[in-house]
Simulated assay, not measured.
Amino acid sequence: MQVINILEKLISYPSVVGSANDEIVGWIKTYLQSHGAAVTVLPGPEGDRANVFATFGPRDVPGYILSGHMDVVPAGEAGWNSDPFQLHRDHDALFGRGTSDMKGFLACALATAAKISAMPLVRPIHLAFSYDEEAGCRGVPHMLAHLPQLCAPPLGAIIGEPSGMRAILAHKGKAAARVTIRGRSGHSSRPDLGLNAIHGATDVLIAARDAAAELAKGPFEATFEPPYSSLQVGTVRGGQAVNIIPDLCEVEFEARAISGIDPSNLLLPVRQAADALKSQGFSVDWTDMSAYPALSLPENAALAALLARLTNNEPLAAVSYGTEAGLFQQAGVDAIICGPGDISRAHKANEFILVSELAACQSMIESLADHCLTL
């Protein structure tokens, strides 16, 4: 199948984050097996979602991983000019949810399967397709836990997030959490009889604001914009009416960390402020929503040099968005970002990728296969 036909098929599966993905997993499995790949489907603990791991070449020799996620963000935003789950072509542009982020990369990897399967690979090429990346990289840790049983220690992983086919060496880590504060409802004329959950949440909001101000003072890492770790309040929900004492308030926070800092630790001042509310009679629940570490691949790493050669471009130092690459690095696998499309097109109406970008990605993967013909 041509890469555009494969992308059309992938887009037709509405594999929205947090939903069952058995249809797209089944199609990918059948397609890869038809081209001689050794395929393992790895169900997650949710029961209705799975990762896919496939190998071309010898499993017992160190090789390379092509990594991407099968899930996409919802497509309910206004402004779509075509069905987001039906690929629409307009000259060189291919429109649809996930075209750039990141089914375009998956399509390129699958489109090269026929050619790669016929090659006498000395080093293997693995495909690692995950689920629920858009919910904070929830699927890939379950696949990484099985990696020692799936293949020899890899030489590197190429995470195909949209980067304009420029390799990227680093990104920040991220952690997100939700605090749920429960007080006591009542009529607003008798605040002495109630316990205002929104008032309680203000202590937590102030703690988040103050923590963010402290982070802006450093430490610094010049490759990032901004060059320091950050923290913000993302959502606040609470209250029913102005004359009702709110008995519930939920606040969601996000922290992004420079290299060498655990992003979850950046949320500790917020959690301490939330826990302190218990002494005032509030019920407080803290929920960790997602977390992944920063990526930091040295400029002189062999994987960086390889991608410079495969793309004919020197790698970029860093990007502001996050990927699964940090989790691969944490698992002991050198990782780098390189994929077709542009992150600025993602998560918005009329997401698209260019046919020329798909061609460049296929060329990179085929060059990687040529590299794997010798030790």
Rank of each mutant, 00 (worst) to 15 (best):
C137Y: 05
A93F: 14
F129D: 10
S130Y: 02
T112A: 14
V122A: 04
A93D: 15
S117K: 11
G139K: 14
R97G: 06
G96H: 10
A111E: 00
R89F: 00
T99A: 03
L106P: 02
V72I: 15
A78P: 14
M102P: 09
R123Y: 00
I116H: 05
P124M: 07
D132C: 05
R123D: 08
S117E: 09
I125R: 06
G104K: 05
Q86H: 14
I116K: 08
E133M: 09
M102I: 07
C137A: 09
E77K: 12
D132Q: 11
A111Y: 05
G79T: 13
P84D: 06
P124N: 04
L110C: 00
L106Y: 07
E133K: 01
V72M: 06
D92H: 06
V122F: 00
R97T: 09
L110P: 00
A93S: 15
R97E: 03
A107N: 12
S82V: 02
S82K: 07
N81C: 14
A93I: 15
P74T: 13
L87R: 06
R138Y: 06
S82D: 04
L127K: 12
M102N: 08
P74I: 00
L87E: 09
S100P: 02
E133F: 11
M102S: 09
S100D: 02
R97W: 00
D92E: 07
H91A: 13
C108M: 11
R97K: 12
K115V: 12
H88L: 09
F95G: 04
P124G: 10
C137M: 14
A78E: 15
A118G: 15
P84G: 12
W80S: 14
L121V: 07
P84H: 08
S82Q: 14
K103T: 07
E133C: 01
D101N: 09
